[in-house]
Amino acid sequence: MTIPKDAFRRFQEELAELERKKDADAGQPTGATRMARAKEEFLDLRKRYGLTVADVVAFFPEEEGIGYIQSLIAASEAKPRRGRKPKAS
Score class of each variant (00 low, 15 high):
F42I: 05
A36P: 09
L45H: 07
P86H: 03
K85S: 09
R20F: 02
L15Y: 00
T30S: 15
L18M: 04
L15A: 00
P86E: 05
R46T: 08
A74F: 13
R9T: 13
A38W: 02
L72D: 02
E19V: 04
Q28D: 12
F59R: 02
T52V: 11
G67R: 06
V57D: 02
S76G: 10
F8I: 15
P29Q: 14
F60S: 00
P61E: 11
P61D: 14
R46W: 05
A24L: 15
E63V: 02
V57N: 03
P80Y: 10
M1T: 05
L72V: 01
A38S: 04
Q28H: 11
R82F: 09
A26H: 10
R48H: 12
D23S: 12
F11V: 00
E62T: 13
Q12I: 11
R82V: 09
D25L: 12
I66W: 11
A7H: 13
D55Y: 01
L72Y: 01
K47A: 02
D6F: 10
I73W: 03
P4G: 04
E63H: 05
R84A: 08
E77C: 08
E14Y: 00
V56Q: 12
R48L: 12
G31L: 14
Q12P: 00
K87R: 04
K21W: 06
G31Y: 15
I73K: 15
L72M: 02
A75L: 12
K87W: 07
E14Q: 15
A88Y: 08
L15W: 00
V57Y: 03
I66E: 15
A16G: 00
R81L: 05
G50W: 02
E64I: 02
G50I: 02
A74D: 14
F60T: 05
A38M: 15
A78D: 03
T33K: 03
Y49V: 00
A7S: 14
P4Q: 07
R10K: 12
R9I: 03
R10M: 00
E64W: 15
K85H: 03
A24P: 13
E40W: 07
